[in-house]
Amino acid sequence: MKGTRFGDPLVLATIAILFFIGVFVLYTTSPIGFASDDWLDSLVFRQLLFGIIAFIIIFVISFIDLQISKTFLIQIFLYWHNPFIACWTIFSRSIGEFNASVV
């Protein structure tokens, strides 16, 4: 079966193992004598928080058909990052053609 419902299990499993190896190392290498007053300061907790966000991001993006809306994807990334491209695209005549491919 070529298609899978939630992406590719092998890729997701490998990433999860790598991530938890990182968290484990953060936990075991906390310096001797280190005592945190606040559990929010703990690197392990923060990394777990980032991990949850990361896996949510993976699932959300993998449910969007980026191949159909590739111009939309480009716009999200490049308008946000590069004012040069944003200005040029907005003021050029090709804006109509540029947006026409958004389905």
Binding site: F50, A54, I57, D65, L66
Partner: peptide, 21 residues
Amino acid sequence: FVSYGGSSLVANAIIIGIILS
């Protein structure tokens, strides 16, 4: 995916999301 850091982890998650999509 191993090093501590939100930006790197989230950016790599976006990459995996794009590829899986």
